[in-house]
Design a protein around this nucleic acid. Structure first.
Lengths: 127, 127
DNA sequence: CTCGATGCAAAGGCTTTGCAGAAAC
DNA sequence: GTTTCTGCAAAGCCTTTGCATCGAG
């Protein structure tokens, strides 16, 4: 190792401290800057790529324009406000029995799932 | 109306007959061509846009590179082979009670959900 | 003749890559 | 001196839009 990575640990740190649940690369770059960390977008891109490969981050597809990333850890699903785009982590809402039934009926081996609930957050509903 | 739409009905027809469950714009354009329908990509793009607005199609985010579209109809979830990218429609596997619990706990009004199961199809598992 | 639909081509936005400079070993 | 990380800038890829043309009413 000729030069220690500066950005990857900063990303993990930012995510650990952050209030957010899933970052786009753009948000992540902005948050690093706010934390006083100088980092080019492409460096963040490559650092995230590396962290994904190491299994420290996971990619979550919220399908709202840009891929998002979050710390690898316990599985959870997501709840998104369709109006303000707020994103919350929620416990898994997939029905185990239903999953097994699907596996049996289709012959697939189901290895993972991604769930996004769409809704209105309390603040947006009042408006 | 100065000129009746040619492409939108052909899209609905292609989707109704097709074996596929969700089309990317590229696949849709290709399927139209195979069916002998001449259609430019941008025309397909705009036709789909129109059909979405009319509620005849829905957009489904499988998050596998390109947005996909399918006929509006009964809600269903999706099962995707991570190896060959095959896509199947499956009955909803979301736990109703869990959904209600989330709504209560977060204060959100949940209006929709999107589920993608990842797995290995029978053919790919054998290899 | 009029007006919307279509095809072509270019613009736009975001992701990904190449390359030279910088920093640690 | 060697190696790898970083920043800058350009290349790519797919989506979206502008515009001239076409064709049914």
């Amino acid at each position: 190792m000729a030069r220690p990575s500066r950005i990857p640990p900063q990303i993990l740190d930012t995510m650990t401290r952050g209030a957010r649940h899933a970052w786009t690369l753009e948000q992540l770059t902005a948050d690093l800057h706010e934390g006083g960390v100088q980092a080019d977008f492409s460096s963040v891109y490559r650092a995230v790529e590396r962290l994904l490969g190491e299994g420290r981050l996971v990619r979550v597809g919220i399908d709202d324009g840009a891929p998002r990333f979050e710390l690898a850890g316990e599985h959870h699903d997501h709840l998104r406000c369709v109006r303000c785009a707020a994103l919350e982590a929620i416990p898994c809402v997939v029905d185990r029995a239903g999953l097994d039934a699907v596996a049996v009926r289709t012959g697939y081996t189901v290895t993972a799932h991604r769930v996004v609930l769409d809704g209105l957050c309390p603040a947006c509903r009042q408006r």
